[in-house]
Design a protein around this nucleic acid. Structure first.
Length: 312
DNA sequence: AAGTGCTTCAACCGCTGCTAA
DNA sequence: TTTAGCAGCGGTTGAAGCACT
């Protein structure tokens, strides 16, 4: 299947930067005829360009509804939030940011946000590649996350990034623990039988976020997460996270529900958990615990996640 | 002023997914 | 069911502008 590049047959087709005259021709043509057929459009407009180039020029630059100028704090936060859910689906992200193009967002991510991630010690590759998410789980980094959460204000970009990565780490651990005998199991975390720093964890377990209400699912009154994370292993011993276990939460109703986190952990289902993993898990729980304690009366961050996921 | 390195972003390339025949 | 044509997407490139020495 497939086909040769659209302009391969047109060796003399013009490439490179567009001139104002070419822009005008393209705009005039689209205003008059619309852009139903990009391949035919260059001829119609009298342009020596390939249709692909015309489409790109229009969608990324000439479209009348394009917003120019720097990204605002709100837009940046939105991008981070969306990227956490959608990965590198720039066009999908762009649909949530009116006036911004996928190319612009992609460039902004690669030049600005990526830099911030690096400065914060967050693995940019994990953030940038939707299908190879590998949140850092080394202890130093987890402590970093914890410190970031404590040091930054909830509306800071740093805070949002740290929360995002923390959630990823947590989901990763949940997935692997459900299929293993990790003494730091998430179930233990939930029911309070696992301890961190000598403390029982149950009192600080997450509050219900009404994530099950909309989906019509039920959660135990004592432990709203029990249903959602309660372990839904399929016949292969793998976590059926996409259907029942987490499907009641909007988190995994997304098109791209962190698949790499799931698959990665599933590969480790039978492998022994080494000491460093346990320490990393414990550090993640600790960071989580801090976040929950500080976020006790405001679950807005998780609501944001859920709202976002359910809207995609 | 000139040279060098870095950053930004418009544009290109190659691939994927959808649709119609 | 297969195949060809097309639009759209995401990764990458390279020219232009900027900062620094």
């Amino acid at each position: 299947m497939g086909r040769s590049p659209c302009c391969a047959e047109d060796a003399d087709v013009k490439k490179g930067p567009w001139t104002p005259e070419e822009d005008q021709k393209l705009v005039d043509c689209i205003n008059e005829h619309g852009h139903g057929n990009w391949r035919a459009l260059p001829k119609l407009a009298g342009l020596n360009r390939c249709g692909k180039s015309c489409r790109l020029r229009w969608t990324n630059y000439l479209r009348p509804d394009i917003k120019r100028g720097k990204f605002t704090e709100e837009e940046e936060g939105e991008i981070i939030k969306l990227h956490a859910v959608l990965g590198n689906k720039w066009s999908r992200i762009a649909t949530h940011l009116p006036g911004r193009t996928d190319n612009e967002i992609k460039n902004y991510w690669n030049t600005q946000i990526r830099k911030k991630l690096l400065n914060m010690g967050i693995d940019p590759q994990a953030q940038a590649q939707a299908h190879t998410h590998k949140p850092r789980t080394d202890l130093n980094h987890l402590l970093n996350l914890s410190h970031l959460l404590c040091a930054s204000h909830p509306w800071d970009t740093a805070f949002k990034l740290a929360k995002t990565q923390l959630l990823h780490n947590l989901l990763k651990i949940i997935n692997s623990n459900l299929a293993s005998q990790n003494p730091y199991s998430f179930q233990g975390f939930l029911d309070g039988t696992s301890t961190l720093s000598g403390k029982q964890l149950a009192p600080t377990a997450p509050k219900p976020l009404n994530i099950t209400e909309n989906a019509g699912a039920t959660a135990t009154s004592q432990n709203p997460w029990a249903y959602n994370f309660g372990g839904d292993l399929n016949s292969e011993g793998k976590l059926g996270i996409s259907n029942r276990s987490l499907s009641t939460s909007a988190v995994v109703q997304t098109e791209n529900p962190l698949p790499e986190l799931v698959s990665e952990s599933l590969h480790q289902t039978s492998s022994p958990i080494n000491h460093m993993d346990k320490m990393a898990d414990a550090a993640t729980y600790e960071a989580w615990e801090k976040l929950i304690m500080e976020d006790d009366d405001d679950c807005s961050c998780w609501k944001e996640f859920l709202d976002l996921s359910s809207s995609t």
